[in-house]
Each structure stands twice: as C-alpha cells, then as structure tokens.
Computed example of a mutant assay.
Amino acid sequence: MRRGLLVGLVLLGGGLLTACTPPTYDLAGVYKDDSGQIMVEAGRCSNEGQISGFYLAGPPVEGEPSSTRTTGHVRGDTHPGPFPLLAPVPGPDGKPGAAPPLDAGSYYLRFHVLKDEHRVLYSSATSFESGDIQALRPGQVWANDKAMSRDHFRTYLRDAC
C-alpha cells in the first residue's frame, strides 16, 4: 500500500513539474540580406510577451573561453527583428564595423518570451550549420531545419504555436 502511494506521489510530482515547463518552439529564421550579412528574424506566438536576450552558441572561437557568441540583438528591444546574427566588431575608431564571418560549424540560437520580468511564456530554439546559411538563395530563410521562402516562413510562424 505504501509503495503504491509513494509511486503515485512520484508520478504526480513529475507530472506537475512537466506541466510547469514552458514549451519550446523553433521561431527564428536566419537568412542573408542583399549585402550578404547574416540576419535573424524572430517570431512570437502572439503579440503577447517581451523577447528577452538571445543566446548564440557555435564552434569554439580561437582565444575565447567559451563557444558563446554575441548576437546583434539590442537588449531591451522588444521588436523581433530583423537584426544581425553576429554583433558588429568595433573598428579602430571605436565605431561599429562589419559583423564577423560565420565560422564553419554548428550553431544554436535560443531566446525566451517573457510574460513579465520573472515568468517565461515559451522559448525558441533553432539549430543550423554554417553551410545551411551559406547555401541559401536570395529570398530564402533557414527555419525549422530547412530552407524556405520568406512567405512560407511567415506562414510557418503563424502555425508553429
């Protein structure tokens, strides 16, 4: 009897923890603009919530302690894009220069949509290879593990949630 009660409580507790975990969607599209700069357009499930900072991980950078990269997203900007995937490197005069090239390898882009300062409504996680982005034709976006047109990407965002 006790064993059955204990198993029931463990299953109930696990179910409650699972129910409290915010869902994760693939809501970011990565593409090259007309100048060849790699850009991100992030979507939301609705106009509700505020996008928090973006996290980008990729292959290790020589001389850097981690694989984390700085995106071109401006902290506090609630507009979901487009913005440069990689933050521009300051030039010798201290003004922003060109974005660094996308090194060969695998990348992982993640962001959260917050209901308020402390509550995550949902997250977005997108994975891609540098070769996927380099192979895109004009007007194509990499999202949901494949190349697609901009129109298809916007339709995909409406249906993703």
Rank of each mutant, 00 (worst) to 15 (best):
P23W: 05
L11I: 14
Y108V: 02
H79E: 08
P92W: 06
A147C: 05
R150D: 08
D103V: 12
F128T: 03
Y122N: 08
L109G: 03
S35M: 06
S127I: 00
S52M: 03
G72A: 09
C45P: 01
P101D: 14
V120L: 05
P23D: 15
R2E: 14
S106Y: 03
A135N: 14
V113G: 02
Y107C: 01
S66C: 02
F83M: 10
L6T: 10
Q140H: 04
P22K: 12
P65H: 02
Y31P: 07
D103C: 01
P100E: 04
P90I: 11
A57Y: 02
E48V: 07
P100C: 12
C20T: 11
P100R: 03
D151K: 11
P88A: 13
G4A: 14
C20D: 10
E117G: 05
A28W: 01
D34R: 14
C20I: 04
Q140F: 04
L16Y: 12
A160M: 09
L16D: 07
P80M: 09
E62T: 15
A104E: 14
R154S: 08
I38A: 02
P92H: 12
T126Q: 04
Y55A: 00
D77H: 04
E129S: 14
N144C: 06
T68A: 05
P100T: 13
V40I: 15
L17C: 14
T24P: 10
P100S: 08
G81Y: 06
L6V: 14
L85P: 05
R44H: 09
D93C: 13
I133Y: 03
T21D: 05
K115F: 09
R150H: 15
E117D: 12
V120Y: 06
D151S: 13
Y108D: 08
Y55T: 10
G58K: 03
L102A: 04
G139E: 07
C161N: 01
H73E: 12
Q140M: 14
L9H: 02
E48L: 04
Q50P: 00
K95M: 13
S124C: 05
P84S: 11
Q134S: 15
E117T: 05
G105M: 09
K146Q: 12
E129H: 11
H152N: 07
L121A: 13
V141I: 15
P59Q: 03
C20S: 14
D33A: 11
S52C: 01
R2N: 13
D33K: 10
L157H: 01
G13W: 11
P65C: 03
G43T: 06
G15C: 13
Y25G: 10
Y122T: 08
G91M: 11
G13Y: 09
D77P: 00
L157E: 00
D145M: 02
R69K: 11
L102R: 01
R154W: 00
C20P: 00
D159Y: 05
E62A: 15
G131A: 15
A160R: 08
G72P: 10
T78G: 07
H118P: 00
D26F: 01
C45R: 12
P138M: 12
L11C: 15
E62D: 15
A160K: 05
K32I: 06
T70R: 09
S149I: 01
R158T: 03
